[in-house]
């Protein structure tokens, strides 16, 4: 039962960069399991290798050791189209200039399913509308993507990933550039999406306090190890104390956040 729900699993994964002469591992012995219907936060200090881990999980980068299994198949063995139907991403980088409307942007998510000209079938349009409804951006669909706010654009990009209809969505720091209210709204949206659609959503973030309250599970990267557990267990096991290599910053269990001495 439990096994069927697993969408992505990584065992004894070692990530980093390698060239002919040497390979430099950034993190070793990573074990991660991403299951259906779970919202999972990836936490770690700057430069710890969050991006490298995400790149390895999404198949952009080869792991140094170990394998990433996506739906039971090695992620590097997928062809581009199959991978696009299994894994959707949302990035932080700004979009190049274009005249795309919000609807057209979300509809691009259907590319892995459309013909060589990218024509939308009735089913594609239905999926796009479903994604738009789920993210509640109906009022934006005729606007150009550069006319809307950062928070709205983030929702639109999530809608695009939803339209791609993949069991797993990975978001790279979706809450940066947003104020507290929009951060909370966005994470609530992600939480609702996991429970309503049964998808697994993995996102990297620096907003530990919000992630603690709104995630089902967390993957914490510290200089020594990578730990995956529920927020409650992570607090009990004092994993967060090792998050920053600085004795002036410590985790306060009562407050559920960091305190500075």
């Amino acid at each position: 039962m439990e096994r069927d729900n697993i969408i992505l699993s990584a065992e004894q994964l070692s990530i980093g960069y390698s060239n002919k002469k040497e390979s430099a591992a950034i993190a070793d012995s990573i074990n991660i399991t991403l299951s259906q219907g779970k919202l999972i936060a990836l936490i770690g200090a700057n430069g710890i290798g969050k991006s490298t881990l995400l790149r390895t999980l999404t198949g952009i980068q080869q792991p140094l050791k170990g394998t990433v299994l996506l739906k039971g198949k090695k992620v590097n063995d997928y062809n581009a189209k199959e991978l696009a139907q299994t894994l959707g991403i949302v990035l932080t980088e700004s979009l190049p200039p274009s005249n795309l409307t919000v609807f057209e942007l979300v509809a691009l998510g259907r590319q892995p399913y459309t013909n060589w000209l990218g024509t939308l079938s009735p089913e594609d349009i239905q999926q796009v509308n479903k994604a738009i409804q789920l993210t509640q951006i109906e009022y934006l669909i005729h606007k150009r993507h550069f006319e809307i706010s950062d928070g709205q654009l983030q929702k639109v990009l999530i809608a695009r990933a939803l339209a791609q209809d993949t069991p797993l969505i990975i978001l790279d720091e979706p809450t940066t550039h947003l104020d507290l209210l929009h951060k909370v709204n966005l994470l609530r949206l992600l939480k609702r999406l996991t429970s309503e659609t049964g998808k697994c959503i993995l996102y990297s973030t620096h907003d530990l306090d919000l992630a603690l309250q709104l995630s089902d599970e967390m993957v914490v990267m510290t200089p020594d190890s990578v730990t995956q557990d529920t927020p409650k267990n992570l607090i009990t096991n004092k994993v967060f104390d090792k998050l920053f290599n600085d004795e002036n910053i410590s985790f306060d269990v009562q407050k559920g956040g960091f305190v500075i001495k």
Partner: peptide, 10 residues
């Protein structure tokens, strides 16, 4: 949407 999104869409 840029190179990375394009690749992620197959």
């Amino acid at each position: 949407l840029g190179e990375r999104y394009a690749k992620s869409m197959g």
